[in-house]
Structures are given as structure tokens and as C-alpha cells.
Amino acid sequence: MEQTRKERIDRGLKVRTGGIYAISSGREIMYLVGPRLLLIVGILLVPLFLEFAPYWKRVVNIMCVYALLALSFDFLANYVGLVCLGGAFFVGVGGYLSAIFNVYLSIPMYLSIPLATVTGAALCTVLLLPCLPLRGVYFAIVTLMYPLLFTRVIEALDVLGGTNGITGLDGFPNQYVEQYAIIVVMLLSLFAMRRFVSQDIGLVIRGVKDNDQAVRASGINVTSIKALSVFIAALMGCFGGAYIAHLYMWAGISLFALDFSIIPIASVVIGGGGTLVGAVIGSFILVPLSESLRFFGTLRIVIYCAALTGFIVFKSEGLMVYLQRKYHQFERWVKV
């Protein structure tokens, strides 16, 4: 019997070898820029298309916040080796800080959001510092615990508006500012992160995931590298939180909801871990899907789970890993 096997060959384009830039032909430039351009232009045009469906505009905003959270999860899990269940932690801290700055200290919105992003990320990093020298599940557990802790503290002590939350935050001046603020920040974060992980410092971070002992033996303080990574991831999460607080003009304990931790993880699973862009694509699929299933009421969760399981069983590598392979490689059957 004749046996065949599948052979994969990299496309022989110069652009795929490092350090050489595609300037030789329009085709090669498009090969390189095309997919990126498709994503950027596509997402920038979405608000214009949704002019007639105002409800879905909100969904797109939330979708971009989830994309930011998924980016931060993907970065921490697949580049630093820290499994972070703390999306809700970042969002909550960012949201509440922004509310405090805006309502209690009367700082205008365009300052309170960046301020909440940076101070929030610093606060998250300091709070997570004790579990950074450890390996294993500790980081995951502690990040999962903090949002629960904050919720209970706010409830029990009735501080920061208690269960009612802090109301009266400034809203965005108009819908376009509201939408493009999050879309532009999300796109910038995506491409900044992609660049960052291929820099030398990004390689050091990946080294920590592969083998932290050898990084120590090279004279690099692993804990401070991890702290830097957590800070970067928390920046994205805290911005999302501050944005949501101003979007709803309200910061309450639902900012610490588990959704913010779990949906980003599911997005990364669907999109493909370690690709960064997969995290974004994953949330572009999951959030609208979950929204359109509202029609089914409580059955929503069942359908949602079925879709997730399907992805895990049939495309466990993730959508973007699969698509990138198809894009960069030929496949053909050859005789053995």
C-alpha cells in the first residue's frame, strides 16, 4: 500500500527571514502588511457600520476591554509563565481608582483614566509582589482571591459607596470619543506588546518562563523581571477598568466580577495562546457570541460552553495558530 504524509514548507518569501525588510515588491509588502492592515482598518470601521445598531456599539466597547484583558492574560501566561486569574482584580482596582480620582478628588476624566491606569497597575504589582518569587499555582490563587477580598471589604466596611458603588463619574463627551478611545488603545497595546516580546527584554521575560534558574545564574533578578511583567499586564487591565467606570459613569463591586477573569482566558484558548493577536480575535468572537445568545436566557451558558468545548476538542491549538500556519506554510501530500 502506498503511504503518504503531509509535508509543510515555509513560503519562500524574504520577509520571513529576520532583519530583511520587504521592499522588493508590492506583493511581498502586502504579504507582510496585509493581515495587519485588515485587522486595523476593520476594527476602525466597525463603529461606522454600527451607526444603525447603537446597542451593539456598547458591545464593541466591552469587547475591546475584554481584548485588553485577554492580551494581558496571554502575555502573563505564555510569555512570563504566570497564570493570572486576576482580570477582575485589575479591572476593579482601575475602575475604583478612576472613580476616586474623578468623583472624590474632582480630577477631570482625561487625567483620571491615565492616572488610575498607572497608579492602579503599581498598586496591583505591589499587592502581588509577595507571591512573585514563588513558582506554581500560588500566583493564580492569589490573583483569584484579591477581587473576592476587595468585594467583601467594600461590602462589610461600607466604604467607597458600599454596595451602591460610586456614582456620578464624568461620561465621555460623545459616542465617537467613547468608541475610538478604547479601540485605539487596544490596537496600540496589541502592536506594542508584539514588539515588546521580540525585544531583548522580551526574550529575558520568555527566558524566565522557560528556565528561571538559568536566568538567576545569569545575574538577573527574576522577581523584578516578573514584577515588571505584572505591571505591564496590569496597565492594560487597569485601563480597561477605568474605561468601564467612565463608560457606565459608575464604579461598583460588579467591577470585581469573575467574568473579567474567566472570559479573557476562554478568549485566549479560542484565539490561540502565545500569539497575542489570537487573544484579541478570541474576544472578538466570544463577546459578541455571548451577547447574541442573550435571547436564549439561562440556556446561554449551555450554548456558550458547547462552543468552547467544541473549540478545545477540534481546534485545541487555537484559531490564530492554525491560521498563521496556513498563511505562512504550504502543505502538500508526499509519498513516503
Binding site: D200, L203, V204, R206, G207, K209, D210, N211, Q213, A214, V215, S218, I220
Partner: peptide
């Protein structure tokens, strides 16, 4: 224990 996901020469960047 090389940095197993990195190319050999990138191992030395660290």
C-alpha cells in the same frame, strides 16, 4: 535546561 522555546543564539541574549 536551555531556554527551550528560543532559538539557540537567542539563548545568549539573556
Amino acid at each position: 535546561r536551555p531556554y527551550h522555546s528560543l532559538p539557540a543564539f537567542k539563548n545568549l541574549i539573556i
